[in-house]
Design a protein around this nucleic acid. Sequence first.
DNA 1: TGTCAGAATATTTTCGATATTTTCTGAATT
DNA 2: AATTCAGAAAATATCGAAAATATTCTGACA
Lengths: 223, 223
Amino acid sequence: MTASETQTELTYHRLRADILNGNLQPGSALQFAQLRETYAASMGVLREALTRLTAEGLATSRAQQGFRVVEVSLKDLNDLTNVRVLIETAALREAVAYGELDWESDIVSAYHRMTRTEKHINGDENTVTDDWAQAHQVFHFALLSAAPNTRLIAIADGLRASAELYRRWSMPYETVKRDVDAEHQELMELALARQSNEACDALARHLSFTRELIVKGTESARQ
Amino acid sequence: MTASETQTELTYHRLRADILNGNLQPGSALQFAQLRETYAASMGVLREALTRLTAEGLATSRAQQGFRVVEVSLKDLNDLTNVRVLIETAALREAVAYGELDWESDIVSAYHRMTRTEKHINGDENTVTDDWAQAHQVFHFALLSAAPNTRLIAIADGLRASAELYRRWSMPYETVKRDVDAEHQELMELALARQSNEACDALARHLSFTRELIVKGTESARQ
DNA sequence: TGTCAGAATATTTTCGATATTTTCTGAATT
DNA sequence: AATTCAGAAAATATCGAAAATATTCTGACA
């Protein structure tokens, strides 16, 4: 193996991707025998990858009962959204206060890349390409990256992984014709204009949008 | 092995305790051969325990270069303190708003236990007993436990582990005769009186105290 | 004196066989 | 019909040796 990436990291990334894109369904059991075939990895490697995913909040484990994909729920989505608003607005406020030219350039660059990346697989509006998801993450990371408080940024990044899980869930409900690009553009412009309060409001709305969609979607489905 | 605790968990807890109480110094290498003797554990078990500690922020790892105890720094202490104030006050505000009789009773009980627990080992003011550290954690957990947002509580708990690392560092500087018990009592009374703003202020001051001590201590040492 | 290649050493990573625990199945008992 | 229990089956947890990779040491060359 010539790559610098260790076997465990490779398996970790592949498992992580399969959880995030729904290939492994929330709540389903992650059994070693089965995973071993799929990923051609030894038990030790799988075990370590799963431990990392558990710590990240994408899987759960109970002693002697193995691992499962984490469950999703409306309650957790609500909690998650509230925490993300709290953390990300705090980080954005710092970034707007301390960001310099590098920060501005990174945001513009990330925005450009995101808007020029093919968003849907074969035009199917219920899907998102890996490339776009990646570019989206980079854009949001760039927005906060100038915040001096690295702990804040690390927590925001960690929560973004969980949020990805729900984004997938919300896609079928995006009947409202949400204009995500416009939200991102507004966010970028307010940040670059150093309008702290307005930018934070826009970010809060942006983060809350997914929750609103799912809540409304499941409510109408229940009737 | 008859215990319900799995081998990995046992080793994880022992390693964690040794990092927190300074038995393993910040920045020092955690080598397998050495750890294997100390903890009488296999490589796989150690590897998993270390992976969990890394995810928790108490250790670091680089591919092919093993694990180390996490480094401490003034910058990180500052970041950590700011995030903790942000998170814990948000959680406390929720707890004060939603807490019921169970919550009140738990706080009173935890406070009582903490104040009746021997604090120092052999009266040495530079040390803290494991029992007191445990009771202290339980008290702070009880304060926030009524917050409906479980994500918020989980993050607060996670950060408390890192904070423990710095508490140890600050002990030699506690020359100011800090009255921790009084701080805790004030905190408890304000929370039970449902005085949200005042309680959050008291909590912010309480969390920031450790930072002030270390900053002042290292400044005067540098002169 | 400083630099560099290559051997020697030390450390980490990976693997599958074995031990332990949980879950399943079905017959016996109340 | 419901419960209990033992044995079988399936899954997870544990271990230490072997492979892969980094680090250190050595001595020749500039």
